[in-house]
Structures are given as C-alpha cells and as structure tokens.
Design a protein around this nucleic acid. Sequence first.
DNA 1: GGTTGACCTGGAGCGCGCTCCAGGGAGTTG
DNA 2: CAACTCCCTGGAGCGCGCTCCAGGTCAACC
Lengths: 129, 129
Amino acid sequence: MTTTGLPIAEAAEAAGLSVDTLRYYEKDGLMLRPVPRSPSGHRRYDATDLRWVELVTRLRSTGMPIRDVRRYAELVRAGDGNEEERLALLRGHREVVLRRLAEVTAHLGAIDHKIGIYEDRLARVPRSA
Amino acid sequence: MTTTGLPIAEAAEAAGLSVDTLRYYEKDGLMLRPVPRSPSGHRRYDATDLRWVELVTRLRSTGMPIRDVRRYAELVRAGDGNEEERLALLRGHREVVLRRLAEVTAHLGAIDHKIGIYEDRLARVPRSA
DNA sequence: GGTTGACCTGGAGCGCGCTCCAGGGAGTTG
DNA sequence: CAACTCCCTGGAGCGCGCTCCAGGTCAACC
C-alpha cells in the first residue's frame, strides 16, 4: 500500500468544494505548498493539505477575500518569525466578521418584525377572505 | 416651499448608498414605483421611497440576491392579496440568514481558537526573541 | 450670453470567485 | 487493441452587483 493521499475528487468531496475550486486555490497561491503528485502527475492530498483546505474554507466562508487568504498562506509558508503579522491578520478578520455579524443580526431583527406584522395581518383575515 | 423630496445625492447620503446604486436599483425593478421627478426630470425621493430603500438595504445586506428583492417588490406592487407569498419569501430568507449566521459563528469560533494559539505562543516567546 | 453644477440616459466595464471547456495523457477492463 | 475513466493544463466564460463614462439637459449665477 504505497497509495498516499486522496485523489482530487475525494479531497473535494471531503472538503465540500468542487474539484475546480481545489485546482483554482492551488493555482492562485492559497495552498501551503504545491499539492504532491502521484507518478503520473495526479494530485494526492494528504492530511496536512486537507487540514489547510479546511482552514481556507473557514476563512473563506467567514468572508475573507481570496487575496487575504493568499497573504496568510504566504506568511505561513515563510516560516517562523512572522507570527505577529499572522495574528494581526486573523484579528483584523475577526473584527470584520464580528461587525458583519452584528449588522446582519440587527437587520434580521427588523425583518423579523416585518414578518410578525404579516403574520398578524394574516391571522386576522383567515383564508384568502 | 413646493420642493418635495430629496434629490438623488441627498437620498444616497441618507441611505448610505451611492447615487449610481440608487439609479441601478430603480432601473432593475427594485423600487416600489418609478421615483417621482421634478419638472426638469430630476428624481425626488420622498419618505416612502426612502423607507423602501431602507428595507431593500436590510434585505441586501443580509444577503438576499437582487432578483429576490425584485420579486418581493413585484409582490408589494401587485397590491393586497399576496401576503402569504410575501411572508413565505421573507421566512425563507430568514431561514437562510439564520443558517449562515450559525455557520459563520461556528467558523469564527475555530478562528478564535487559532488566534488563541498564536497569542499563547507569542506570550511565551516575548519580543521577537 | 457664458459658465458652473447637479442631474439625466444608455451602455460599457470591472472585480470577484469560481466554473467550464478543449485537447491530451495515463492506467484499467474486456 | 479499443473503450472507459480519472486526471492534467491553459485559458475562456460567467453571474453578480455594482461603478464608471460620454454626451446631453436644465436652472442659477455672474
């Protein structure tokens, strides 16, 4: 058993992304390293690649732009010594996310209120009467 | 004082949107009605227009796609009788937003954890040592 | 009458984040 | 050997939501 790592289709499945997206992330510099290849040139995602993809997914799905994810990947790739910068990037992102969560929550409250108004109105005038 | 309604620049200012965006919303059918015009053809946003823009902003900034906002505007424009449909649209949106909030919150938790790790590491190895 | 400034219209352009496609190779199956 | 499947690459294309631009009108001011 020399088969190491998942082929791209399974990695995509595991990550909840498309095959195209995985290739795109790599081409765009979001990965920590070029994904290792099998002798025939096919990508083989190992556990560290998959964990990194998971982190990228977290950053992306909290709204971090591709370019910032790339920046973060560059810092990690550069190795020890830039932890402050990584931390600053993550903290900055955290602040942005918190502000957005607060904004969305507030707007949702107003929408809920509107929903309540429609519910009352419909309760008062039962079936299409 | 026959001046009724705000010119587009002031409406944009009040709404926190750009002038271009306000025109775009109207062109794209997101408004309840064509915005009234001054004799010279300039838009004049009155209170009802501004309140509607505010609602559109709430829907948009909670992630509702333009096409759904347009659909909602069409329902309201159509007048009484389709309240169930409006309610369904708003409720559906609410569910989507709640799911996204939960997802973002969960991912943010993982990111916070990572921030904590960096903080510990940096606290242990004080100043660039 | 000329200039300025706010606004108008139709339509092109753009940044983002994928998504899709053509053309090709390598390994397995019958 | 042919057929099939999975993968490869480079690059084009796309949906979204604006954003920008050219060319023009109109009212007010000097």
